[in-house]
Amino acid sequence: MFSYCADPSTLDTFRWLTCYLTTGVHMSFYKSFLLVLALLAVTAPVALSFGFLGAMSARSPMKPVSWLGKGYIAIVRGVPDIAFFLFFVIALDQSFELIKHNIVCPDWTDPIRQGNDFLVCPQAKVPLGTSPEYVHQLYGFLLAVITFAIVFGAFAANVLYGGMQAVPRAQLETAEAYGMTRRQTFWRVLVPQMWVYALPGLSNLWMVLIKATPLLFLLGIEDIVYWARELGGTKTSKFSAYPHPDWRMWYFLFLLIFYLSFTKVSEVVLERVMRRLNKGQATSGGEAMRKEASA
């Protein structure tokens, strides 16, 4: 990075640190923070839509659909997320390839499973063997997003389901009295109303999602914990110009600060959203705001 970094062993502490903290690996470390933030930003809406679908089907009057929704919620929530992450990515990847295989290579006669090997035709590989590395990485990112979204979608479904149930019946009855159909009632009355009831649960879920990111490395993503471990580990002078003993403590301290401040920021933002949603609502939160305003 800096011109004086050519021979770090001769530098004083401050300069040594400036060189050390700007090496290529450290840049990867800083980039992984962006990666984690990007993943959170993509996962949250996807998980929310999974949750919405789950909650909708759990409420469905058709029994099989309702069982499907409730089963999804119950099974995924009953299992620790680590256990899920440890095999789900490979399962997901294989099922994608299997589907694509059946579409693009209908004439393929070789067995897909030969012993332990999972072999689809080369055209059905996702992504194709010829694709550049960034496509593979993008695909890995996508798999991680889907896995996260499926797990947290189940939690979101549960929260949204509770939110939908909490909307006062009178509201729905009024809608019916106005002659709205089931569908209209759902979209025009229930959905806009449920957020205020669901938000406390959803904001908790967001906090949980943040704190689940250290498990990303299980999904094959080089996340902040992966790099903190990698960088903090003992480095010998044979393989690094910056030898140092076990410094994982400092890296993890940095992560701790990151997580705490991220949580704090999220808390503040969510508090604001909650205030907005509470405005004019017939809940205790809305009541408190009315009192504030009139006082």
């Binding site: 906090m207 990111t213 250290p214 993890f252 701790l256 997580y259 949580t263 704090k264």
Partner: peptide, 18 residues
Amino acid sequence: IFLFRGSPLFIQFFFAYF
């Protein structure tokens, strides 16, 4: 409460072990 709810359990374990 903030300290323990705001950080991943993973990192809490790490520091505790140290």
